[in-house]
């Protein structure tokens, strides 16, 4: 499958003459040269792909370059070097006019602090991207009302942003970004400014919308719990580099380095790991229990069964074929022995 949006070897350096500096080092300057010449690296050597319908979460602490990277993907920030491919076309080589067209029809973005226009009502805010395209008022307002209903703000269309709560304001931000029915959806820490309870509610809302809409999503967060809740895959960034890209499960079971391992340490692993990732593939010689679990089951959901059974449980795929076994010891490993997994 071709990536919907991808970037290759993207660099963003701040300093006197970043292009010249990169060229002088053949596009890959060592760290001490960057620091020595007074350049600040926001993004280094970043490559990633987002496939159609996928949620890629870009995760990192503040200053890790995740916001800069996502802005490079939408060309809100001009990368110093690299390629950004949108449907196979290089965004960075695109003339301004075409870029505006792509933004008007194919991209939507949600911002951390909502970025609503304070002088416009909810309706006018949501209709704004349609308005700048020159769509007539009747059509755009009808479309905007549909999206407002979709995000659960029906009846609030005449309100001004300051008359709404934070969660409601972000619903407006989401509605605005969806108004043009974009293919690609960028969300820059959309729930970070909200209370924990509201954040949870908005995450559910987001997942609900995504099940309906199947957008291609780049979602930024600094919250690892949020990342594993929402992500199909996670890209972890540190000091401008992408340290590791993988499914939440991969990150937990096979962290690329200590930095990643640090994030994954406190994760409720039993909720994340599937039976497939902890089972033993060879079943030779063992007498298995009659009870069967599937490889896609989360460990947390079947833990009781496994622990209550004297013998290891049989793991069977959809066709009923035995593909492995899972024992009490495995479950206890998941629940308690972090180190064992980290080195597995």
């Amino acid at each position: 499958m071709d990536a919907k949006i991808a970037c290759r070897d993207v660099w963003k350096l701040y300093g006197k003459d970043p292009e010249g500096f990169l060229a002088a080092h053949n596009g890959d300057p060592p760290d001490d040269a960057i620091a020595g010449d007074g350049y600040i690296p926001a993004v280094r050597h970043a490559s990633l792909e987002v496939f159609p319908g996928e949620i890629l979460v870009i995760m990192g602490l503040s200053g890790s370059g995740k916001s800069t990277l996502v802005r490079c993907l939408s060309r809100l920030i001009e990368p110093t070097a690299g390629e950004v491919l949108f449907d196979g076309q290089d965004l960075l080589k695109m003339p301004a006019k075409e870029l505006i067209e792509i933004r008007r029809h194919k991209m939507g973005m949600v911002f951390q602090h909502f970025a609503l226009l304070p002088h416009r009502t909810v309706l006018q805010n949501v209709a704004f991207p349609l308005e700048v395209q020159g769509i007539d008022r009747g059509t755009r307002e009808k479309r905007a009302l549909d999206v407002i209903e979709l995000v659960g703000l029906k009846g609030r269309d005449g309100y001004y942003p300051r008359e709404l709560s934070g969660g409601q304001q972000q619903r407006v931000g989401i509605a605005r970004s969806l108004a043009v029915e974009p293919d690609v959806w960028f969300l820059d820490e959309p729930f970070s400014a909200l209370d924990p309870l509201i954040r949870r509610e908005m995450q559910d809302e987001f997942l609900r919308l995504q099940t309906m809409l199947q957008k291609t999503i780049a979602f930024i967060t600094h919250d690892f719990d949020e990342a594993i809740r929402l992500a199909d895959r996670i890209a972890i960034m540190n000091e401008g580099r992408i340290v590791q890209i993988g499914s939440p499960e991969e990150l937990v079971t096979r962290p690329a380095n200590d930095y990643v391992a640090n994030f994954t340490r406190d994760v409720a692993r039993e909720k994340l790991l599937t039976v497939a990732s902890v089972m033993e593939a060879s079943t030779d010689g063992e007498t298995l229990s009659d009870t069967t679990v599937r490889p896609t089951d989360k460990v947390a959901d079947v833990a009781r069964l496994i622990i209550d059974s004297e013998r290891p449980l049989r793991v069977a795929d959809d066709t009923g074929r035995t593909i492995g076994a899972v024992s009490r010891a495995h479950v206890l490993d998941v629940l308690f022995s972090v180190e064992a997994d980290a080195h597995g």
Partner: peptide, 27 residues
């Protein structure tokens, strides 16, 4: 004007003129 608001304008596909009159001055 907050950079996010400006970025929201760009992402909506504003031309420079639309940016000024519809986003920056009102904000």
């Amino acid at each position: 004007v907050s950079p996010e608001v400006r970025e929201a304008g760009i992402m909506a596909g504003c031309t420079k003129r639309q940016m000024l009159w519809k986003v920056e001055l009102p904000a």
